[in-house]
Amino acid sequence: MTTTTGHPSPTVLISENLLERMPTLGERFPDVTFVELPLEGGELRPEYCGAHAMFRSAMSEDLFDDILRNAPDLAWVQIAAAGFDWMGGDVLAERVAGGMVTTRSESSLNVTIAEYCIGAMLSAARRLPDYFEAQQRSEWARYMGRDFIGSTVAIFGTGAIGREVAWRVAALGATPIGVSRSGAPAGQFERVITSDQFHTVLPEADYVVLAMPLTPETENMFGSTEFELMPEHAVLVNIGRGALTDEAALVEALESGQIASAFVDVFVEEPLPTDNPMWTTKNLVVTPHTSFRSDGNGARLERDFVGNLERFIAGDPLAGTMSHPELGY
């Protein structure tokens, strides 16, 4: 999907936290009018209704819908995130169907999330969580680690995040195997299989990384059957969405020793309730949806947005467009 005409002097709505991180936007684009959006609450204002574009992070979904309904010239919305499923509803779907372009910050968060995945897998290989627990007991414990080199990593999702994980895996001497809806070759994956064949790769997967979007096809994709297919030494890393797994089945797989360990950054309910058994599940490391947080994100977010703003002004195709609106990604 592309813009049909250039917008040499657009009005761009931008979330206040993003505008604070990018203080030189006005100097770089003197012909662009930037209008600040509040992170919380807020009412529809006249200057919102004349907007041509929006760069948003957190904001009131009610205000977002009001803008979509009342800004007829709004031709492009970019989000400061790697995925689309957390935002929008019927109004957004109607505008996208009518030609409005929606893009994500496709090169902003993939680096940090990929580094999280590599860190999690190496941590499991060298058994760092076990050593941390031993330290709490003042116990001089010595564990046998596993070589990461020579291992097989099944990466579900071959988009920007999956590709960043894949080349790092390959650089460390392991074999990245991709799983995607299409099965099309991508990046540095040794091979890519279609999602309807994914059971075939699980028995050989020393590590499984879930980096695919949440869709009706991927919801609860991993349950008891899938965990039973994985080797007992296998490690699961989920940085996609919590609902990609059956969380109760994951808890059971870890408690029973069906798989060795898991690192989970995303959950069906967030924040994770204090009484959720995942907090205390054996060999499960919980992180509070923070795999993307890093000090270099601001510069990457600005680079992604500026690149698309330049394309928008010129009337060129935008990067990171929603390629499958019917599936939400």
Rank of each mutant, 00 (worst) to 15 (best):
Ala248Ile: 09
Asp246His: 15
His233Ala: 08
Val235Phe: 05
Leu236Ala: 05
Leu229Lys: 04
Glu228Phe: 00
Thr225Asp: 12
Gly223Thr: 12
Pro216Leu: 09
Glu217Cys: 07
Asn238Glu: 05
Thr218Met: 03
Pro216Ser: 10
Met221Ala: 12
Glu217Tyr: 09
Phe222Val: 03
Glu217Leu: 12
Phe227Ile: 00
Ala243Phe: 04
Leu244Ser: 01
Leu250Asn: 01
Thr245Asp: 11
Leu250Thr: 03
Asn238His: 07
Thr245Leu: 13
Pro231Arg: 00
Gly240Leu: 03
Thr225Trp: 04
Arg241Pro: 13
Leu236Asp: 07
Val251Met: 09
Asn220Phe: 13
Ser224Leu: 11
Leu214His: 12
Val235Met: 04
Met230Asp: 01
Leu229His: 03
His233Asn: 11
Thr225Leu: 09
Asp246Met: 13
Gly240Glu: 02
Leu244Cys: 02
Glu226Asp: 08
Thr245Ser: 11
Glu247Phe: 15
Glu247Gly: 14
Asn238Tyr: 05
Thr218Ala: 02
Ala234Asn: 00
Arg241Glu: 12
Ala243Lys: 12
Leu214Met: 13
Arg241Cys: 14
Gly240Thr: 05
Ala248Cys: 08
Leu244Asn: 02
Gly242Asn: 14
Met230Tyr: 01
Ser224Lys: 15
Val251His: 12
Gly240Asn: 04
Leu214Ala: 14
Glu226Asn: 08
Gly242Ile: 10
Thr225Pro: 02
Thr225Glu: 11
Leu244Val: 02
Ala234Gln: 00
Leu244Phe: 02
Thr245Ala: 10
Asn238Ile: 05
Ala243Gly: 05
Thr218Ile: 05
Gly223Cys: 14
Leu236His: 05
Asp246Gly: 14
Glu226Lys: 04
Thr215Asn: 05
Val235Gly: 04
Val237Lys: 10
Val235Pro: 01
His233Gln: 11
Met230Gln: 04
Phe227Glu: 00
Gly242Tyr: 11
Ser224Val: 10
Glu232Phe: 03
Met230Val: 03
Ala234Lys: 00
Gly242Leu: 13
Glu247Thr: 15
Val237Ser: 08
Thr218Gln: 03
Thr245Arg: 10
Gly242Trp: 11
Glu219Ala: 07
Glu219Cys: 07
Glu219Gly: 04
Leu250Ser: 03
Ala248Gln: 13
Asp246Asn: 15
Ala249Gly: 09
Glu247Ala: 15
Met230Cys: 07
Gly242Asp: 14
Ala243Gln: 10
Leu229Asn: 03
